[in-house]
Write a protein that binds this DNA or RNA. Structure first.
Lengths: 246, 246
DNA sequence: CGATCTTCGACTGTCGACAGATCGCCTTCC
DNA sequence: GGAAGGCGATCTGTCGACAGTCGAAGATCG
């Protein structure tokens, strides 16, 4: 990772992406949702949206159906499609599952004898994260954080887990974008990750899993605390506990 | 569960199902896949299938997209859609995840103080299973088994888990229908389930989780053993180890 | 005879139009 | 004045047709 210092690192001509309209629309909608540009509860009118995107309703509907299956949208027949609401309970559920999955991934990767190799890759990611933290670049730290956890899950070499993680990961991104960003201590975040990496490097399954559970669990609690309790879709706007965020 | 002895248990008029064509098609395809009527690797031609089902390609395509998201179908652009193949590794991955999820559900339900209530419901299900086993009705035992595990997962009261379980559960059904059914000892199956129930009733988290992991793990191993090793889509047709199946 | 180019066919991707359903408004009747 | 029922606007669900793409069979040239 990290930004290439040299422009020649990149190919001259970008890859021409011949993706179908459905893929384009899917990506756009997904991004809009997980980036919080489309707010939970918001209604989608197919014709309007199709016109706005400059496509017909067919590929749009196909994209909507996929997002439905992923749980980011909810369609009630003949009535309409809305962005799925996020209640506090959903956050808690989400972070339990996330914790479960990442804990499992760590356990698997160690069992597979990949501890040292994976730790090496994660160390590099942490270094990138440290650099981004030095620059106070929250956005970049976020991105690298995602990369870290994606790498962790992928290292389990369990395809099904990776697939399910895709869904969970999107939800996490949505939650993170929805709550008011409080940058906390970026360096502390990086340190937290490094602790996990070292436990993995030591091939200490119990400690690794415990650290992962603790890391994710406390984050989830923190975010859930800042969420409107009674349900609905948005975090309250009051002061958030200011500490490491993810 | 169990068959109602009395016809008056059912409503006089069945619910009029106003489901959309997409829903109908979706259900049909999904069933065809998880029941093994559509074999892994099999190709789908949209026009043919649409004609066969008596619908246009639009709702069919929407259904296909959803099944793609669920991982039961795989579409490569401009080339076609096929039923996802199942290699031995996939079975192993599947059963690890299943074990993970059900174990988590058990742990959660006990933590929620639902142990006794859930155990009661599960006991009833086991009783039904026992009855079906007495009749040697493999199909019914299968159905009740599904109900048992669905109940277990639902008892976690974690909506996201339930949603993800939907995907996993479908895969499990597919695998079970694909391997040559060997009935094993139906009563032993029921007994295995009962052991789990009693551990739950005792609110013994560790033992419950261990039993669940063992139960599912050994089943997965068993099925994986009977699968063609080198990949591909089908179990070998040689003799299978004959013991409890799920 | 073999390799490359060209056509052809079959299938997927997309579109615009029509059919069906729901909800809110308005009328009508008590 | 209030409730039941009809009417219409609006949106979703479905359809048939067209355009784009890919692989394979055949044609062309060395």
């Amino acid at each position: 990772m990290g930004l290439p210092k040299n422009i020649t690192d990149r190919p001259i001509l970008g890859v021409i992406q011949n993706k179908s309209l459905r893929e384009h629309v899917l990506e756009m909608l997904r991004n809009a949702i997980v980036n919080g540009e489309m707010k939970p509860g918001q209604n989608l009118v197919e014709a309007d949206l199709a016109a706005q995107l400059g496509v017909s309703r067919a590929p749009l509907r196909e994209a909507i159906n996929i997002l439905n299956a992923e749980g980011l949208l909810e369609t009630v027949p003949y009535h309409g499609t809305t962005v799925t609401k996020l209640a506090r309970k959903d956050i808690e559920d989400l972070y339990s599952i996330r914790s479960l999955m990442e804990g499992f991934a760590v356990q698997r990767l160690i069992a597979l004898g990949q501890a040292e190799a994976v730790a090496e890759r994660l160390r590099n990611i942490c270094a990138d994260m440290m650099r981004a933290a030095d620059e106070g670049n929250l956005r970049e730290v976020n991105l690298i954080d995602r990369h870290f956890h994606d790498t962790l899950v992928a290292s389990s070499q369990n395809e099904l887990l990776v697939m399910l993680w895709g869904t969970v990961s999107l939800r996490v991104r949505q939650v993170m974008s929805l709550r008011n960003e409080k940058k906390g201590n970026l360096h502390e975040i990086a340190r937290n990750h490094l602790a996990i990496v070292e436990a993995i490097a030591a091939a200490d399954t119990d400690r690794s899993v415990r650290l992962v559970h603790h890391h994710i669990g406390s984050t989830g609690d923190l975010i859930a605390e800042g969420w409107e309790k009674d349900s609905d879709d948005s975090p309250n706007t009051g002061p958030l506990p200011s500490t490491a965020d993810f």
